[in-house]
Design a protein around this nucleic acid. Sequence first.
DNA 1: AGGTCAATTTAAAACGATATAGACTTTTCT
DNA 2: AGAAAAGTCTATATCGTTTTAAATTGACCT
Lengths: 347, 347
Amino acid sequence: MSQKKAPTTTVEQARSASGKPTLKTIARISGLAVPTVSRALNDAPDIGAETKKLIRKIAKDVGYIPNRAGVRLRTGRTNVISLVMSTEHDMMGHSTRLISSVAGGLRDTPFHLVVTPFFPDQDPMEPVRYIVETGSADAVIINQVQPQDPRIAYLMERSFPFATHGRSDWADRHPYYDFDNSAFGEIAVNELADRGRKNVLLIAPPAAQAYAQHIIYGTRKGAADRGLNVTLADPVTSDTKIDDIVDYVDITLRNHPEIDAIMTASTSSAMAAVAGLEKIGAKVGREIDVSTKEAVPFLKLFRADILTTTEKVGAAGEFLARAAIQAVRSPLTTPMQHLEVPSAQDS
Amino acid sequence: MSQKKAPTTTVEQARSASGKPTLKTIARISGLAVPTVSRALNDAPDIGAETKKLIRKIAKDVGYIPNRAGVRLRTGRTNVISLVMSTEHDMMGHSTRLISSVAGGLRDTPFHLVVTPFFPDQDPMEPVRYIVETGSADAVIINQVQPQDPRIAYLMERSFPFATHGRSDWADRHPYYDFDNSAFGEIAVNELADRGRKNVLLIAPPAAQAYAQHIIYGTRKGAADRGLNVTLADPVTSDTKIDDIVDYVDITLRNHPEIDAIMTASTSSAMAAVAGLEKIGAKVGREIDVSTKEAVPFLKLFRADILTTTEKVGAAGEFLARAAIQAVRSPLTTPMQHLEVPSAQDS
DNA sequence: AGGTCAATTTAAAACGATATAGACTTTTCT
DNA sequence: AGAAAAGTCTATATCGTTTTAAATTGACCT
């Protein structure tokens, strides 16, 4: 067959056109067939121990790295994890932390990270559907989940591997990492109670988000236990435009001087609240307390009087990366789940 | 030839094993050969107009989307743009803006965005080398460039398509988007001069970064023109840990009461400066001015007296996406380059 | 000595796309 | 009318990998 070609099979020319070593390169060098090389590198049981050792050595020597397109075409596995996320309302590097920590969790695995942001004019479902239909990833990670998130329903229905940042109503059946926002609400309101506060204004996340419900629940529970009142800053949320939060706090505090504490769910909204309070000349830490959680410890430094709780977004990303991989590799295993216990702001 | 197979070529069974329509699906439906379908969809000149119309219609009807692995394996094109970035020192969503705006620029193109962060313990060269050697992207976008960035030298040497956020010494020869930091320095220092300030403390970015040089140059130039003094906060930079900046400002201002203005290059360092000033009881906007640029308009809201200039990171990402694509598709064209003119903080 | 069995290895096909070269029509030219 | 030139379309090979089934080898058994 290969008689036409001169048998000058040196290592040099055994490389592919692109110059990168392939299975064929190793096959030529070792004198074995390509499938043998493939099976050896995949540690198949029907390859001799000696052969495996030899092939692995050659692979290492020539710097063999499997061609992703080849693998993907043949097996359907993409070795890609897609992080689907809205990138609105993020000022404090929350998303960056998530992205880089997911990438961190993917280090030393064959998986690459594809970030698929979706835009305000887009149905959040669209990127998820695209990924599933085109098979452009082995698993997706989604955040900002809703209690009955249609994306999750869609993914579960098709048993497409995924992991979520935050818990849906079906959280017991899928991998997730979540910060215990209910516990946060309880802890924060208790801290306010300890400081003698009575009337709390709660600037919660948008009601559609699952974690908004958790925060509201925890805060109400803690307030009930300690005899505080909680007012929801409806329709203002922690995602409301900053200027509007400032104005809202300004006006609300004027009309309701009994309010002596504000709780929020993000750094920027807390800053807005503080700015609003400054407008009416209220001193944070004295007449009134501001308590918030934040992804990056930041406020404390700027205003030592703000009460803060830190959410470990970095830990979330690493966990989610591992959880997604597990969902891909062992779909039948119990899903990996973690609930982060909030610890008061020391750190 | 195809006599052995029963001619039951319904649309149903024409789909691939995975259920997704392929070229073969369209070929069967149309009765044409696979290469014809391929060429028609790629608008090759040797396919009849009628045929093209027919094939395109069928492709649309069945919802054909080219299999990326197939294309990639055959052509070597990955349809991937890799954004390589350090994710340290980002608190204010700078990276997120860049990521999502690059993704925005890639919308409606066949390119996917792979984010490849590199970690503090890693040589910044490593991910770039990996991408080039494995051919895992068609182009890379890098940020935080150095004047003689080895990554850029490496990429140019191999004529691997790329675009940079920031200008290297060889910027005239490669695509880039940059904010005119020199102009920013000049504008900012002029504004300070207008307000009667005399002695500026400049907290610049780390000296290794190209844009640090630009800021320092512009600031010095503007200061010389207007007769101000500039002190560099060496070795403190805008990337120094926040607490340390606070302490540094505190101490420095104590020892140098003549300083009546602080310039910084990021939101967080400006906040740290303000925090430091508060420690010694200095009132921003009265005894002393603080001027900074920021990626997201933020500080103004919180402290109306801070002087700010906004850098349009969103515009950068979109531009870089387009520039990278151009570099891939038309390597010989003049590289796309843009220098953003800073506009004083109104907005 | 013949046959069974296990242990290895290989040939061939396939995933989906495109590049190359050739085949078949139809037009156009002389 | 015959030949050359377009204009369309197809057969074949290939990218790098893995899967399937078959081939080879030697050892073991009776």
